[in-house]
Nucleic acid binder design. Sequence first.
DNA 1: TATTGTTATACTCTATAACTATA
DNA 2: TATAGTTATAGAGTATAACAATA
Lengths: 124, 124
Amino acid sequence: MASRRVKAERGDAGLPDPQFNVLAMLHAHGAMTPGQLAEAERIQPPSMTRTVNCLVELGLVAKTEHPTDGRQVLVDLTEAGRAEVHETRRRRDAWLTGRLSQLTADERARLGEAVELLRRIAAS
Amino acid sequence: MASRRVKAERGDAGLPDPQFNVLAMLHAHGAMTPGQLAEAERIQPPSMTRTVNCLVELGLVAKTEHPTDGRQVLVDLTEAGRAEVHETRRRRDAWLTGRLSQLTADERARLGEAVELLRRIAAS
DNA sequence: TATTGTTATACTCTATAACTATA
DNA sequence: TATAGTTATAGAGTATAACAATA
């Protein structure tokens, strides 16, 4: 499967996929609660607690209190976390670009269309 | 991701993905050694030993001695294993068919072309 | 000596159930 | 009482290193 080949490209410096996905989600949406992150990644809250704690220990995200609801916690990227997102994307893009360069422009365009269709299916 | 939605469709009766993948591989290629299975799934031999043993305990595969090389072991589907492959495929196909029916025939055709392109990328 | 497979050990991701704190 | 998050516990997948058996 292609997805496993992409993942394998994280190499030594990269994070496990679930951890990186959280960083990417925060990068795209800004600060989120653990509950929101769990729902977005379709995993249970305790699993997300674990992942977030791991990222906190690595200094890639930080928890802050919710301004009005003491039960909730806000998770957001640190500067190091933001740098990690950019670094990982750069590395993955380099690999994928190499692969895509083996296709014709027309083939790449068709691949792009297919991605949209798959997004629609996955969302339903 | 669509792949996670497909996997989620295994429901209560289904096997974890790596285990099912071994069944599917054996179904397609016939008996294989643990080493061949590990290479095909791109995991290390000890991991495959674990997965195969699990399937043996479930009665879905059986190990037999290699006819000429005493070091090697042959793994093959049992009847129950073959039935499991068919059952799981039937269930997954039912889900995917439902999703694909939301697309137009033209869109489905384009998706099929994209699959071929992705196969080429993954193989390289 | 090289190859095949296994055992030992450890880490990550996932889950469910039970608990704490706050609303 | 309901909600958000955590802790406790367990199962599955993966890996590397070390070992046994066979070629």
